[in-house]
Design a protein around this nucleic acid. Structure first.
Lengths: 211, 211
DNA sequence: GTCTATACACCGATAGAC
DNA sequence: GTCTATCGGTGTATAGAC
């Protein structure tokens, strides 16, 4: 971020910054961090590559800013749930929102766990603070949902929270989208149902014998 | 593959090729296709980079060979299930095998849906033939399991099959492994349970009201 | 067949004119 | 602040000696 004098130019500058983050958001979801080049971003926004560096001092900072914006939006969603919703309902709804966000072309919360990007994110203080906040909210909801008997006692909090994160970058979404048989809403519902209800028929007792 | 005269040299050549595929398998699971360089592979095997090209004419062919080997192993697992196992059991067990394979450092079946690698795989005839074979087996098992009442009627075959593929590259596995609270066996069982049984408590009826 | 050395392309980041 | 041009580094693939 640079010092800008005129209020009009400042507004223009910030609008351009939003446009850059929008483009990064889309490119990250399409190609991932490593395959996204600064030329891609510059072309998508319609500015010269060098100009990007007046806004963000590195490719890592640029991508981290886009990820931070996503986390802020997630927190906003969590804060705006109706007060009467129970924890289990909130967990379902935040997953639903995340999947819808991805269907609209957004980045998943997890940009591939391996690779240099994840390490760079962990050195970004703004991102880290937001990620910890979101994480705390998820653990609190998971614990509350278990107390309310809404999620299974035999599944630990870790598994619940990580599973929700993982569903946010689940390639099943893209498969179902490309296979074409389902509408976007049906895809979201199918994934929410398999996440919370599982694949198994609820009628079946399904013994755990080893043969 | 090149023409080799001496039987000893041929054996040596093939042993080296297996070693190369082992290294590629590990590197693909650690860094993914794009971040894995031919230098990495050469260093891991202990040969010069140029020599790799005597075995595989490109990086894509090399990685495709490693993926094909994985699919062959998967087919072998499917073929060696006890005859008395029902379809639902087989689906659970193939997922279990896949997760264990990854915990031992193996490649996931899906090397990130986006990126140039997936496109290259689709042009590789050997890989494509094996992938279609595995896919057919999965669909057949899903249909049989539904007929037997083992998986939910409200979930389409597409969702079942894609979900199983997606679990094979689910980052939940790495999260749980790094968080350290669970043994490898517990991680596998937790993921199999959430896949087939879901997160929700089976006691809860959980109405689908919109508030 | 395996090695070293190198050609060629691409990408992140910077310099300098305007 | 935005542009064009370029540097430095890295990666795939190949050439040529042995």
């Amino acid at each position: 971020m640079l010092a800008i004098k005129s209020p009009f130019k400042k507004q223009q500058f910030e609008a351009r910054e939003e446009a850059i983050l929008d483009a990064v958001n889309r490119l990250l979801s399409e190609k991932g961090f490593d395959l996204m080049t600064m030329d891609d971003v510059a072309d998508a926004v319609g500015v010269a590559k060098g100009s990007l560096y007046k806004h963000f001092s590195s490719k890592e900072k640029l991508a981290a800013a886009a990820m931070s914006r996503l986390l802020s939006q997630t927190l906003e969603v969590l804060n705006n749930f109706p007060a009467e919703w129970r924890a289990g309902k909130r967990l379902e709804e935040v997953l639903r929102w995340t999947l819808q966000h991805r269907l609209r072309g957004g980045v998943p919360h997890l940009p591939s766990t391996r690779g240099a990007f994840q390490r760079a994110l962990m050195l970004n203080l703004e991102y880290l603070a937001l990620a910890l906040k979101v994480n705390k909210r998820f653990y609190a909801l998971a614990a509350e949902a278990r107390r309310g008997g809404e999620i299974s006692d035999s599944i630990s909090d870790n598994v619940v929270v990580y599973t929700l994160y993982a569903r946010s970058c689940d390639p099943t979404l893209e498969f179902l989208q490309k296979s074409g048989g389902l509408t976007d809403d049906q895809i979201v519902e199918a994934m929410v149902q398999t996440t919370f209800g599982g694949l198994r028929s609820r009628a079946t007792s399904y013994e755990n014998s080893s043969n």
